[in-house]
Nucleic acid binder design. Sequence first.
RNA 1: GCCUGAGUGGCGGAACUGGUAUACGCGCACGACUCAAAAUCGUGUAGGUAAAUCCUGUGUGGGUUCGAGUCCCACCUCAGGCACCA
Length: 813
Amino acid sequence: MKKYEFSKIESRWQKKWLKDGIYEPDLKKAKNPFYNLMMFPYPSAEGLHVGNMYAFTGSDIYGRFKRMNGYDVFEPIGLDGFGIHSENYAMKIGTHPIKQSKISEKRFYKQLEILGNGFAWNEHVETYDAEYYKWTQWLFVQMWKRGLAYRKKQSVNWCPSCKTVLADEQVIASKCERCSSVAPKKDLEQWFFRITDYADRLLHNLENLDWSERVKIAQKNWIGKSEGAEINFAVSDFPQVIKVFTTRPDTLYGATYVVLAPEHELVQKLKTKILNFGEVKKYIDLTVKKTEEERAMGSKEKTGVELKGVLAINPASGDGIPIYISDYVLSGYGTGAIMAVPAHDERDFAFAKKFKIPIKVVIDGGGLKPGEAQTESFAGEGTLVNSEKFNGMKSADAMWEIVKLVGGERKIQFRIRDWLVSRQRYWSPPIPMIFCEECAFGGIGEQKGMPGWFAVPEKELPIILPNVKEFRPEGTGESPLASVKSFHSAKCPRCGSVARRETDVSDTFLDSAWYFLRYPSATNKKVAWDDAITKKWLPVNEYIGGAEHSVLHLLYSRFITMVLSDIGIINFEEPFTKFRAHGLLIKDGAKMSKSKGNVVNPDEYIKRFGADTLRTYLMFLAPFEQGGDFRDAGMLGITRFLDRVWRLGQRVIEKEKVAKDESRERILHQTIKKVTSDIENLQYNTAISSLMVLLNKVEEKGLSRKEFEVLIKLIAPFAPHITEELWYELGNKKSIHISKWPTFEHSKTVEDTFELVVQINGKFKSRITVPVGISEADAKVEAMKNSTVSGILNGKEIKKTIFVEDRLINFVL
RNA sequence: GCCUGAGUGGCGGAACUGGUAUACGCGCACGACUCAAAAUCGUGUAGGUAAAUCCUGUGUGGGUUCGAGUCCCACCUCAGGCACCA
C-alpha cells in the first residue's frame, strides 16, 4: 500500500495546476463567469499568518465548489501594499519602503502559493505598482472633475504618532485605528470626497444587498440618518435667528433654553451684546484646547456658560429663554445649536439641573406627571400637555403640526461626514493636483470655489512617487514630499506658469476602493478596466472578508462604485452583490497579535501536517462566519481523517471487491445533499463532519470506484491535493477540480423506514421502527405493541394524541 | 447608555419549521495487535448511580405549549460596534 506523503504530493500538484492553468478562466470568453473575491491582504513583513489563511481558505473552498458546479471561477490575488502600515514597518526596520515592498511581496506570494488556493495568478495586482496607482490617481481626477473632490480648512483628526490626518472612519473611540494614539482635532486644510452627497443612497441600497446582517447594521449606524425639523429661534434685539435641528418638535413647548456649540459663528456676532463675554471667551478657549478625547470621554459632567444679556424666543410659547454655550453640543452635527428640552432629554436634564434652569413637562408618559418635582427625564413619546392648543394630542400627530405653526422645515440629518482623503505621508499615491498662484490670483480654477487648482492632465499620469531618501513624516502638517523640490515644482496646466504640485498623498483606502475593478483587466495597461470584461465579470458575485472593514473599505468601495456608475463608466452601482464576513481566528482565547506572542505562522504547520490538513482543520474548528480558537490538538482529528481516506483510496485502487448495497447508496446521496447545501451556506464545519460520518459508515466494507470518486469530489474543495492525487491514481486524466460536482437524487436519500419517537406527556419513552409515511392510526397501533409504552398506558385514558408525520407520536394522559 | 451577536459535556462545537439534547472531532478510560511502545483498530464517555426505557440537565428566574436549547417577559455574563448625533 502506497504511503501518503503530503509534502511531495502538495508541491507536485501546485506546480502542475500552475502549468495547466486550471484556475485561469478565459476572461474574454467565459460563458459562466463567477467572480469569487477575498479581501486582498496588506503584506505585513512578518508574513502571512494563520488568520489570513483562515479567510483565504474559506473563500477558496467556495470558489472551488463553484468551479466544480460549472462556473468559470475567477479568484484573483494581490497586495494592498501601499499605506501607513507598510510604511511604519519599513521605518521600523530601517529599509526603504520601495525596497521593503519587494521583499514582502516575494515572501507573501511564496506563502500564498503553498496554501493550495485556486488563484488566478496572471491577474495579480499590487497597489504600489505604478501601473496600478496610475489609475488610482486617474480616479482622483474623475472625482475632481465631477466636483466630488474638494479642499477645505476644517477641524480634522490628527494622529501625532503617525503624523498625519485621518478620516473619521479611521478614528476609533478618539484613537488612531493604526497605532491607538489619541487623535485630537486640528484645524487644517485638507482634501475631501463628498461621500455625504451619497449618504441617502448608501443607506437605501443596503436594503437590497445580500450581505452579512451585522455589516449592514454597522453601515446603517455609521451613516446615521435621523429625520426631524429645523426650527428658527429669534434672538432678542438681533436680526439673525438661531437655527436648531430637532427630532422631537412635539416637545417644542418644553424648550426652556437654547445651547450653541462653542464654535458657533453667532457667538462672535453677538460679542458686543453679551455682558459676560470675557467669561464666554474663556470657556471657548478652554474647549478648543481640550482634545477630542477629553471632550468625549471626560466626565459627562456638563459644563457651559450662559450668554448674559441676550435671550432666544421660543417660537411656540413666545417665551424669552436663556442661551448657553456648551461643549455637549457639537459644531459638526446639525446646525451646531439645539433647543434644550430638559424634561424630555437626558442630557438637557442634567444640564438644566446643574444650571438651575426650569424644567417644563410637555409630554405625559412614563409615569411622569406635570407639576411634580422632576428626578429624571422622559424621552419617550406620549400625550402632549402644557402645549396650548396641542394638549391632548399624541406626539406623532402633534409633531408636524407644531413645525407648521412655527414655520419650521422638515429636515434629514446624517451623522456621516465627508471622507478626508489626503495624508501627510510618503508611501501612497501622490494626489495628482497642481496649484497655480497666478491663476489663483486671477480667481481662475477648474472647479467652483477652488481658484488656482488644476488636475494633472490624464496623459501625464502616473505622477510617480519619487524614490527619496528621507521618507519619514515630519509632523509639520506637510508630506515628506514637500521638501523634494524636483517633485513639487510643476507647470500650471492652464497658463504654464511655475506652479506647485500637491505634495500630500491619498488615503490607502482609495487604493482598495476600486481594486476589484482592476483585477479582471489587470493585464491591460491601456485602460483602468476593460468595458467588455467588466460587464462580464462585475459586480463581484461572492465577496468574503473581515467585519472590521464594515465602515471603512466596504463603505468607500460602495461610494466610489456609485460615483463611477453616475459618471456612466460602469453599469452597476453596488460592487459586491453578496458579502459575507468571516469570523476571527483566535488563539488561547485572545486575538492573535505580535505583542501577545500568540501569532501562528502557517508555514510550520504546513510543513508538519500539510496544507490539506491545515485547511480542513481551520474549516472544521468552528463555523466560518463565527470564527474560533486555534488549537494544535485539533489537527490530529483531521490528520486521521485524511489518512483514512487515503487508505480507503488505496483499497479502491487495488480493486477491492465491494458488493452493491442500498443503504450505502443512501448515505452517499444524503451526504452529497448535506455537503452541497452546507458549502453554499459557508457552513464548512458541518460539511466536514458529515463527510466524517460517511467515512465512518462505509470504511469497513469499502466503496466501489464510482462511489469513492464521489467521496473525494466532496472533499476536494477542502483538501485539494490529496484528492487530486487519488483522482489521478484512479486513472483520471483531467483535474478533479474541474470535474463535475456530484448530484444527488432525492428518492435515493429517503429511507423506507424510520424510527418513530413515542412520547407520553411530551416525554420521550421509546422509539419504534416503522415504514415512512405511516398513518396516525397505524402508528398508534404499532406504538401500543411496544412493551414500555403499553406498560405505562395500561388502562389509562388517553386524552389526546399528537402525531407529527414521520417524526413522533405523543400520548397525552 | 444604545445597537448587534452569543452563553449547550473535561474541551472545539452539532441540533431542520418548537418534536429523541450533546452529531462530528479532541481528550480520557478500557480492550485488540505487539516482547514492548508508537501508530492503527474496537468499545465506552452529561450528571445522579453498580445499572436501567428511573430522576436531573442547554447562563438565571418566570411564562406559553401535549412538548422549549429553539418562542415570549425579566435579569446576569461575555464578545463586537456606536457613543453628549439633539
